[in-house]
């Protein structure tokens, strides 16, 4: 069953930038689905379309069977590229604020996740490093019991130990049937976790399929396949 269905999705912003040019793909329930591409390929626009933050210029997006724009689909938890939180509060207050509007948020689950991610609770958000902000955002997002997690660069600024922990959390959620849509520039970590993927370039899909199939057809690892594909697209 498809959790996300994207059909002929195009998005042109008001400034004339064509971010997406008729892309189509489906995301299977319980899978870890990666969206890869160089800067400006349309990854974040795709994630925001799935979330319902932006209106497609044409085409259709169905997230958990519903059109996400404008109201979103509440069984989705999103970690954006910029891990911006309310600077004026301390972490426990931030958790309280998040719990007040995030559906199915479990403070207990947050506590477990924050311990796993080695998060220092007493500090003000404004004083947190980039890595600690990422940890906090990831812990908040996964403390929500939802069907779909949409993650944009969820390991940004993390050390290798915590990065591994985040990848474990992603895997554990997929094992229990949750779907994770994942975008990252770190191809080695995507290769560790993802089942299916699309590779985007200049708003178009260069590859849509499973990771195994990609590696089999090229006899290369993901990084090499990705580079070959991106360079090939430039020819």
């Amino acid at each position: 069953m498809s959790v996300i269905e994207v059909k002929d999705l195009s998005k042109t912003y008001k400034n004339g930038v064509e971010a997406l040019k008729g892309i189509s793909f489906n995301v299977t329930e319980g899978s870890i689905f990666a969206i890869l591409g160089p800067n400006g390929a349309g990854k974040t626009t795709t994630l925001k379309s799935i979330l319902g933050a932006i209106k497609p210029t044409s085409g259709e997006v169905l997230t958990l069977g519903k059109i996400p724009f404008p109201n979103g689909v509440k069984k989705v938890s999103f970690v954006p590229e910029e891990k911006s939180l309310y600077e004026w509060v301390k972490i426990p207050e931030m958790v309280k604020i998040f719990a007040s509007f995030a559906p199915n948020f479990s403070p207990k689950k947050f506590e477990i996740l924050s311990k796993r991610l080695n998060l220092t609770m007493k500090r003000k958000i404004g004083e947190l490093s980039q890595g600690n902000r990422t940890k906090l955002y990831v812990a908040l997002a996964f403390a929500q019991d939802v069907k779909l997690y949409v993650l944009d660069e969820p390991t940004w600024g993390l050390d290798p130990i915590i990065r591994k922990e985040v990848l474990d959390i992603v895997r554990e959620n997929a094992i229990v049937g949750k779907t994770v849509v994942y975008s990252s520039h770190i191809l080695s970590e995507v290769e560790e976790v993802c089942d299916e993927l699309i590779i985007l370039k200049e708003g178009k899909i260069l590859y849509n399929g499973t990771l195994d199939k990609l590696k089999e057809s090229n006899k290369l690892n993901l990084s090499e396949s990705f580079l070959e594909m991106i360079k090939g697209g430039e020819k």
């Binding site: 979330l51 319902g52 933050a53 996400p68 404008p70 109201n71 979103g72 689909v73 509440k74 989705v76 938890s77 999103f78 954006p80 910029e82 911006s84 939180l85 309310y86 998040f98 509007f101 995030a102 559906p103 929500q144 949409v150």
Partner: peptide
């Protein structure tokens, strides 16, 4: 960019 905390978790 804190609006992304709300978008998707609350309707518009």
């Amino acid at each position: 960019r804190t609006i992304y905390l709300l978008i998707g978790r609350m309707g518009r």
